[in-house]
């Protein structure tokens, strides 16, 4: 294993950094899209609600690999040329945003209906009530399942390997096929994933405790 690291450590590290960057970007945008779509799913506007529901149903029920391949193979044929890494980030963002939207929707619906009524009856608009009263409470409900989505996102980024995505898994495959040291290589790859996911798990647990302590 030492030998593996001294020769291929640089490659693994590059894959690790790419996976980390891709995860952060996909997490950032899937949070924004997912939160918006989740809020629209419970809105009173039928059109917005229908659109949001269709988005969620579509991307929740298609395998991530199909979405990523669509952006890697089909998208360049009609729109613009993008590499596997970009296609992977876009696919991962869209896919994860559907799960986050569902989580956010459930969180909002988990806040008792009386809270919306209380907000409205003191003169707040629907959106103001969302902002000051509903969402701050929904966050607490949403944090634990959201943490699971974040972990899944990091692990799911390994499909990048199928589209030459230059991520940790991609380099892992490369090294394994060059060295035939599959045990050593995939063990290293697994450890590198844990370097991202374990601190993330602990951070989410910490955030959960902090929010719970407030009331």
């Amino acid at each position: 294993m030492i030998e593996l690291l001294s020769t291929y450590g640089g490659m693994l590290l590059r894959g690790f950094v790419n996976t980390l960057i891709a995860s952060v970007i996909a997490l950032f945008f899937s949070m924004i899209i997912g939160t918006l779509v989740g809020i629209l799913q419970v809105s009173k506007n039928k059109f917005a609600k229908g659109l949001a529901n269709a988005y969620v149903q579509l991307f929740l029920n298609i395998p991530l690999l199909v979405i990523v391949l669509f952006f890697y193979v089909v998208f360049p044929m009609y729109v613009a040329n993008i590499n596997g890494y970009t296609a992977g980030i876009i696919g991962l963002t869209i896919y994860t945003s559907a799960f986050i939207a569902e989580t956010v929707r459930a969180g909002i619906q988990g806040v008792p209906a009386g809270q919306m009524e209380a907000g409205l009856s003191t003169g707040f608009t629907y959106w103001e009530t969302m902002r000051y009263i509903i969402l701050p409470q929904a966050i607490k409900i949403v944090i634990p399942p959201l943490g699971n989505q974040f972990i899944n996102l990091v692990k799911n980024s390994s499909v990048f390997a199928m589209v030459a995505g230059l991520d940790l898994m991609y380099y892992g495959d490369l090294i394994a096929s060059e060295t035939f040291n599959t045990f050593g290589t995939y063990t290293m790859v697994a450890l590198f994933y844990l370097v991202i996911t374990l601190p993330l798990t602990h951070f989410m647990q910490y955030a959960e405790r902090r929010l719970a302590a407030k009331d």
């Binding site: 009524e117 009856s121 003191t122 003169g123 608009t125 409470q137 407030k214």
Partner: peptide, 21 residues
């Protein structure tokens, strides 16, 4: 505009509906 009416009409609920946060 319902909001302008609601500013002048207070309501107390059976289950209080205080903001827990």
């Amino acid at each position: 505009n319902l909001n302008s009416i609601r500013k002048n009409v207070g309501m107390v609920f059976q289950h209080f509906n205080l903001y827990p946060h």
